[in-house]
């Protein structure tokens, strides 16, 4: 089997697992968190709705980051528990490639649905309709950056029992750059400012995370499997 063949098999397996064991849960969590945040500013009058429009799309990014943390927790833990990780280290393909395939499956299975769900959520948070495509695109790239940047934390804490809080602590410092550029791009889209610069930097962060994340995560995973 060629390298791409093995990566494809890993990708299909993980995507099937994501779909079967509930891509709906992180999606529902994302929508629930997005629905709760406006309650903090009491959006009952039109004035207050306008205030919400100032911060609404950025609030969406908080929900997206939390949803990413939620899915990262189980990403490697399940593989470590049922022995799949040992199989992955024995595979002819390098572990880095398999981790990248897993991350890609997670992005397709969870990241893209969240980005699509971000469109109606952004409307509800008072974003102007013209800004919706930009916000959803930003979220799609941002989910890739979150998943890539969170890989090392997820891999490092994979063997820790109830490691969810630990993963959150480990991943948060790495979430700061995509968070800053993504929320800035969303804000610029809402205000009608040029959002290209922030968006380009967000894409750069996502690419860097996709390049470095699997390598660092594989280094930590090899130690877990030892």
């Amino acid at each position: 089997m060629s390298l791409l063949g093995i990566m494809g098999a890993q990708f299909r397996r993980d995507l099937a697992l994501v779909w079967k064991s509930g891509a709906a849960a992180p999606l529902g969590f994302f929508l629930g968190a997005a629905a709760l945040t406006p309650l903090a500013v009491r959006p009952t009058t039109f004035d207050e709705l306008d205030q919400l429009a100032q911060i609404g799309p950025q609030l969406l990014w908080i929900a997206a980051a939390l949803a990413a943390l939620l899915v990262l927790e189980r990403l490697f833990q399940a593989d470590l528990e049922d022995g799949s990780l040992d199989q992955m280290t024995l595979s002819a393909a390098p572990l880095e490639a398999l981790v990248a395939a897993k991350a890609a499956a997670l992005w397709v299975g969870v990241g893209l649905p969240i980005a699509l769900a971000g469109a109606p959520a952004a409307l509800a948070l008072q974003a102007p309709p013209a800004a919706i495509p930009a916000i959803a695109t930003g979220l799609a790239v941002g989910m890739a950056a979150f998943i890539g940047a969170g890989l090392v934390g997820a891999a490092a804490a994979a063997s820790v029992k109830r490691g969810g809080v630990l993963i959150a602590l480990l991943a948060l410092p790495f979430f700061a750059p995509p968070f800053i550029f993504g929320a800035a791009a969303a804000r610029a889209a809402v205000l009608g400012d040029p959002f290209g610069e922030a968006f380009a930097l967000l894409c750069g962060i996502a690419l860097a995370a996709a390049a470095i994340g699997p390598v660092a995560a594989a280094a930590a995973l090899r130690l877990q499997a030892e």
């Binding site: 891999a155 490092a156 410092p173 700061a176 750059p177 800053i180 550029f181 962060i205 470095i212 660092a216």
Partner: peptide, 18 residues
């Protein structure tokens, strides 16, 4: 140690972003 080295890459990126 892997986490610490990854953090070394992250800190300047965070500084630049902010």
């Amino acid at each position: 140690g892997v986490f610490c080295m990854a953090g070394l890459i992250n800190v300047p990126i965070v500084h630049f972003s902010v």
